[in-house]
Measured scan of single mutants.
Amino acid sequence: VKVFRALYTFEPRTPDELYFEEGDIIYITDMSDTNWWKGTSKGRTGLIPSNYVAEQ
């Protein structure tokens, strides 16, 4: 598990995607895809765009 911080707010387009706000901490559990990672924030899990976060 790696810890990342959201650089921007992300509004999901599908139920599989995770909503998060700029500054949120996201725990990444799967980075197997280059563009979409699986992450958890505020008790919810979903896909996030990798270019919206920076490693802490």
Results as ranks from 00 to 15, higher is better:
V1E: 11
K2D: 04
K2C: 15
V3I: 14
V3Y: 10
R5T: 13
A6P: 03
A6D: 02
A6M: 01
L7Q: 04
T9K: 12
F10N: 08
E11L: 15
P12C: 06
P12L: 04
R13P: 04
R13T: 14
R13E: 10
T14I: 08
P15W: 07
P15M: 09
P15A: 12
D16Q: 12
D16W: 13
D16E: 14
D16R: 08
L18C: 02
L18A: 02
Y19K: 10
F20D: 00
E21Y: 06
E21R: 10
E22T: 10
E22D: 05
G23P: 00
G23F: 04
D24R: 00
D24Q: 08
D24G: 02
I25S: 04
I25W: 09
I26R: 00
Y27P: 00
Y27C: 14
T29E: 09
T29R: 05
T29F: 15
T29H: 14
D30H: 05
M31K: 06
M31A: 07
M31I: 06
M31H: 05
S32I: 11
S32E: 08
S32P: 07
S32D: 08
D33H: 08
D33Y: 03
D33F: 04
T34S: 14
T34A: 15
T34V: 13
N35K: 14
N35Y: 15
W36Y: 07
W36Q: 03
W36H: 04
W37N: 01
W37I: 02
K38G: 06
T40G: 07
T40H: 14
T40L: 08
S41Q: 05
S41M: 11
S41V: 15
K42I: 02
K42R: 14
K42T: 06
G43A: 04
G43M: 04
G43K: 04
R44G: 08
R44F: 08
R44C: 07
R44L: 09
T45Y: 14
T45V: 12
G46A: 02
G46K: 01
G46F: 02
G46S: 00
L47S: 05
L47Q: 05
L47G: 02
L47Y: 12
I48L: 14
I48F: 15
P49F: 05
P49M: 06
S50C: 12
S50P: 12
N51G: 12
N51C: 15
N51R: 11
Y52A: 15
V53A: 03
V53N: 01
A54Y: 12
A54K: 14
A54P: 02
A54D: 08
A54R: 12
E55Y: 10
E55N: 07
Q56M: 15
Q56P: 10
